[in-house]
Design a protein around this nucleic acid. Structure first.
Length: 947
RNA sequence: GCCCCCGUAGCCCAAUCGGCAGAGGCAGCGGACUCAAAAUCCGUCCGGUGUGGGUUCGAGUCCCACCGGGGGCACCA
């Protein structure tokens, strides 16, 4: 082994040396407010990790390395880059570990963070270390609590279409500028009554609402945390709908802005589509059908089909059902017999409904989804269609959901397949009100067409297209007070409390002995001086949990047991009626999403004791660049799994802060990029048990074996349970961090998922050895470069590489950038086999390699005689004159097939190329004297002669 | 069921506007070095782009249908 070869050991020594040097020199620190002469700012961010106990595997740093390469490139092209890394450290695993072992979650969390920091440090990421924060830092969650109080202290002014301080609402109510919704006089209300009015408007509020209660986890969950089949995203336990008093955030106030503002940000279409879908805005109409129990209000997106409604359906849980049900089965208004299918064989409508409800309740969400057969029962009631006075039977069926619209629909089987299916099962009439095309042979017709069968004495839709008909009928309904145009959303308010220990405590207080008017407790904001509200020490970290299917159990937070913490005294301006004593704390904590809703703001100003972020600093890094620009982080990189949850919540918080004047940007993340995942092969033996992937031999052709036994290959996530984890530590030991970085960047484009393949890593290592050898003699350690002029071919190769790399790196096309560097290095190795590579070529190569392999590049740069770090050295620039060669070779196609080649001077015009092509003997032969019909010359590319 | 993305060499991947299918890496094969092996170095084989149509002078690229893979939504009225 030559003594100065670039081995893993040498790489390791070089890497540690440069990491220490960067740290000592604070190379990547950036001031909160860079001086005026600094280059244009760029705020670069990764989605921060949850520091799990098992540390990083090679998949985790893919995005971190990608952002680091970009950040380093941008610094070398004159930009001022802010890039750091934090930790999303509240959350369930540390708490569950605490429950098992009694170790405080903070101890576990801080140990895990220390481990993550070490692993990240050895990768050589150019982070500003001073800005690193963790959501569990007291200095951090103090401001999470402060932001909560801002949201709690705000209401949404519909007219102004923005949030405003609740104090302004109070002033307007007190001054009589704004009337109370129920017509009461503000001045006559007691203080608790006034407070309740205000609470009804706050963006953070307590509500008795149907929530997702997960007995097995002992906590409630947000809609976003519940899977489509009604189980917890974490742990896959059953989740039940229960009415509980919980903290909610009024994210629905922002539904329109959250949907509309997607147009102004540079995000992947798929993520925008997922957010739009989750918000689920649909334009429609609310229509009232009179019944004996009062008006039944339905929501429809197709008011134009109102004349085709032949029955109504209410969700089984609809509050009007009981009032609608008559004592006995009625006779139909038509005078016919009551259809036997309608009654479910029950003696009375009440029995039928009760029976049906119990059947529905016993069906799990999964069963309900799988079995799409239409079931339901007649309530015994009729309602009146406002457009034609027809009596429509009212059914109860579980294909109508209480959680969307009004929980009631008008059924139009002619234009809706679900209604068609139901009508078929129950023998209900079907009437088309949109003319299907002549060749239409389906059932319900949902397409465009002219309205038919749609007229009464006052209004006729017949002949109108769908949109015209909608407008006409809504106008008519509105004139009669029977309906109006409305917008519906799937989005629900955000359930914001959890019955957990390891989360941010709520900075609120309740009067211990109850409100003076005997009503429910009013949460009072704590004064700023009382922040942070620290987590108390407790004996037992677990919430009370229950059997997974115990739906009637109730949540109980671990904080409730910290009785000395719960009871406290405070001087609350938010509670003018009371004194200074006798308060109790909120014992729920905030969900894990809270910290990640604003951490990008704290990165900007992490040590500020007075504010969560200084306004000037926020404006510098996040402010809009001009009119119409929303502002925000310049590039945010992370996995697509946060498409809805984190990214929707963060946008919501940011918009509240924007409305209240705390930030100048209206969106948190100007550009979002989803990196792919590193996946891995896993292997199972004959019993289906996973075997250690690193011990498997063989290949796809000859079959895989483990200990001589055949095993089956499968593809999936990297993880302990699949026994296929590879860690960055192993790769750094075996090859060095630069090789590992280079390999991860060269296996594919950033957005693509790709399989991990340890045995391919050697290719990246060999390339770095070649580069090393171009500069350093492996035997002596001396420089091998010469101060000579490169030949013309080498210059062209260099400038083409520069040109390509300058295009590829900022576009995050790292795999092709790497290919171009390898190509150049291979050219140099071949051209200068005995050494003496011109310094003027080697130095740009080293600089171009620096973003990808910073340690190696720094070392070579230093050995080439440059005392300063190359972190801010100018990135090479291509000379356009050197990109082109003197002559160009053109393939000549005849009728699309390559038949010959010609070489012409690079300066040749189209006519010269054409003439040269036609003069080619092979082409002349194929033409056989005939004039070509057409000759296509693509400059620099090819010539096609059409015969 | 609906929507989105992707199918190029044994494997991972390149290929501006439609313009010579191949940049790069792995594996394989041959050779150099070595007593031998590993490591390293040099050289080299391999496919016509999932399938079938269409548009075009020319299609990996555009259009249609199908097949395969991945993701999202899923009785949302």
């Amino acid at each position: 082994m030559p003594p100065h070869r670039y081995t893993a050991a040498l790489a390791g020594a070089i890497e540690r040396r440069w990491q220490d040097r960067w740290e000592a020199a604070d190379t990547f620190a950036v001031p909160n407010l860079p001086p005026a002469q600094a280059g244009e700012k760029f705020y670069l961010m990764d989605m921060f990790p949850y520091p799990s106990g098992s540390g990083l595997h090679v998949g985790h740093p893919l995005g971190f390395i990608g952002t680091d390469v970009l950040g380093r490139y941008l610094r070398m092209t004159g930009r001022t880059v802010l890039h750091t890394m934090g930790f999303d450290a509240f959350g369930l695993p540390a708490e569950q570990y605490a429950v098992q072992t009694g170790t405080h979650p903070r101890t576990t969390t801080e140990a895990n963070i220390a481990r993550y920091r070490e692993q990240i440090r050895q990768l050589g990421l150019a982070h500003d270390q001073h800005r690193s924060v963790s959501t569990t830092d007291i200095d951090f969650y103090r401001w999470t609590q402060w932001i909560f109080l801002q949201i709690h202290g705000a209401w949404y002014d519909r007219e102004a279409d923005r949030a405003r301080p609740i104090t302004e609402l109070e002033e307007e109510l007190a001054a009589g500028i704004r009337a109370l919704p129920d017509g009461r006089d503000w001045a006559t209300l007691s203080r608790p009554e006034q407070d309740r009015v205000l609470d009804d408007h706050r963006l953070a509020y307590l509500a008795d609402a149907p929530v997702n209660w997960c007995p097995a986890l002992g906590t409630v969950l947000s809609n976003e945390e519940v899977t489509a089949d009604g189980r917890s995203e974490r742990g896959n336990f059953p989740v039940f709908r229960r009415n509980l008093r919980q903290w909610m955030m009024r994210i629905t106030s922002y539904a329109d802005r959250l949907a509309d503002d997607l147009d102004g940000i540079d995000w992947p279409d798929s993520v925008k589509a997922m957010q739009r879908n989750w918000i689920g805005r649909s334009q429609g109409a609310q229509v009232r059908f009179a019944s004996d129990a009062g008006d039944i209000e339905v929501f429809t997106t197709r008011p134009d089909t109102l004349f085709g409604a032949t029955y109504l359906v209410l969700a089984p849980e609809h509050p009007m059902v009981d009032a609608l049900v008559p004592a006995a089965w009625p006779s139909p208004p038509t005078g016919d017999e009551l259809d036997g299918r309608w009654t479910g064989g029950a003696d009375t409508p009440a029995d039928a409904v009760a029976q049906y409800r119990s059947v529905v309740a016993s069906r799990s969400d999964l069963e309900r989804q799988e079995a799409r057969d239409k079931t339901g029962v007649f309530t015994g009631a009729w309602a009146t269609n406002p457009v034609n006075g027809e009596a429509l039977p009212v059914f109860v069926a579980d294909y109508v959901l209480m959680g969307y619209g009004t929980g009631a629909i008008m059924a139009v089987p002619g234009q809706d397949q679900r209604d068609w299916d139901f009508a078929t099962v129950f023998g209900l009439p079907i009437r088309r009100t949109v003319q299907p095309p002549e060749d239409f042979d389906g059932e319900a017709y949902v397409g465009a067409g002219a309205a038919i069968n749609s007229a009464n004495d006052e209004v006729s839709l017949n002949g109108l297209d769908v949109d015209e008909a909608k407008t006409a009928i809504v106008t008519w309904l509105a004139g009669r007070g029977a309906g109006e145009s409305v917008v519906q959303y799937k989005l629900r308010d955000w359930l914001f409390s959890r019955q957990r220990y390891w989360g941010e405590p709520f900075p609120v207080a309740y009067v211990a002995e109850g409100e003076t008017d005997g009503g429910p407790s009013i949460p009072r904001a704590l004064p700023d001086a009382d922040l942070p509200v620290l987590l108390p020490d407790v004996e037992d970290y677990s919430p009370k949990s229950f059997a997974p299917d115990d739906r009637d159990s109730s949540p109980e937070s671990p904080l409730a047991r910290a009785t000395e913490w719960v009871a406290f005294d405070a001087d609350l301006v938010s509670d003018p009626e009371h004194g200074w004593t006798g308060y109790v704390r909120e014992t729920n904590t905030m969900p894990q999403w809270a910290g990640s809703c604003w951490y990008y703001l704290r990165y900007l100003d992490p040590h500020n004791k007075e504010r969560f972020v200084d306004p000037d600093v926020e404006r510098y890094w996040l402010g809009p660049k001009g009119p119409g620009d929303p502002g925000g982080v310049d590039l945010y990189v992370g996995g697509v799994e946060h498409a809805v949850l984190h990214l929707l919540y963060a946008r919501f918080w940011h918009k509240v802060l924007f409305d209240l004047g705390h930030v100048s940007s209206s969106e948190p993340f100007r550009r979002l990029f989803n990196q792919g995942y590193v996946q891995a092969w896993a292997y199972t033996d004959a019993r289906g048990v996973y075997v250690p992937a690193e011990e498997v031999a063989g290949d796809a052709a000859s079959g895989f074996t483990w200990n001589g036994e055949p095993v089956r290959q499968e593809y999936g996530k990297m993880g302990k349970s699949l026994r296929n984890v590879v860690t960055p530590d192993e790769m750094c030991d075996a090859y060095g961090a630069d090789t590992f970085r280079l390999y991860e960047m060269s296996t594919g484009p950033m957005e693509a998922s790709r399989p991990w393949s340890t045995r391919d890593v050697v290719g990246s290592h060999r390339f770095l050895q070649r580069v090393w050898r171009l500069v350093i003699d492996e035997q002596t350690g001396d420089l091998r470069v010469a101060d000579t002029e490169p030949d013309r071919d080498t210059l062209t190769a260099l400038h083409r590489a520069i040109d390509g790399v300058r295009t590829d790196l900022p576009a995050m096309h790292y795999n092709t950038a790497v290919a171009k560097l390898i190509e150049l290095a291979n050219h140099l190795t071949k051209t200068y086999p005995a050494g003496g590579t011109p310094r003027s070529v080697v130095e740009p190569l080293v600089l171009m390699l620096a973003p990808l392999c910073p340690h190696l590049a720094e070392e070579l740069w230093s050995r080439l005689g440059h005392p300063d770090s190359l972190a801010f050295a100018p990135f090479p620039e291509a000379d356009p004159a050197l990109l082109v060669e003197d002559s160009t070779e053109y393939p000549i196609q005849v009728n699309g097939k390559v038949r010959s080649r010609i070489t012409v001077p690079a300066t040749a015009g189209q006519d010269e190329v054409r003439d040269a092509a036609l003069a080619d003997p092979k082409v002349a032969e194929l033409l056989a004297g005939a004039e070509p019909r057409k000759v296509i010359v693509v400059p620099g590319r090819l010539v096609n002669v059409v015969r």
